[in-house]
Amino acid sequence: MFEQKATEWVNSYSDMLYRYALPRVSDSDVAKDLVQETFLAAWRNIKTFKGEISEKNWLFTILKNKIIDHYRKAVNRLTDSFPGMADDDPYFEEGGHWAKETQPKEWGVDYNNPIEAKEFYEVLEKCKSKLKEMQNAVFTMKYMEGMESEEICKELNITPSNYWVLLHRAKVQLRACLEKNWFVK
């Protein structure tokens, strides 16, 4: 009974859980660990599972909480200032105007349509993985998990001003990386 259920879970859900975790944590080993922890937590709590939602949704809910835990631990590891918060910003000049080499350029795409090329999304994932861990956390929670800023600040125990700086710097860096590596080579 145990063997059958565990094998069924792992065969049915492990790949989709991994594919959910990977773009959010941008590290394959961390993503694997989070999937493993998700199954372990589910297995330990299987008696409390009432079947009100599907097993799949239940596992995803656990994984989402594990991902937020992962971000929270990353914040707690930082004992000093946040990386990605320093005053120097390579994308802007001293007066706050775009630095010459990082000024936004036209991408020559139809902004009303998505790009379908899978290679583009590989570049996007790579660019996202280059963000500082805290910037990646805030960006992912906001735009991939759809969380509100108050909730993100509360979960990560950061101030609203830290949140805004981390988020806008993540977006500026991500845009510049995409431009350099895909749109304007």
Partner: peptide
């Protein structure tokens, strides 16, 4: 950004 999920083909 969420289209990254559709295009992520990684597996264990």
């Amino acid at each position: 950004i969420c289209k990254v999920d559709e295009h992520c083909k990684g597996c264990l």
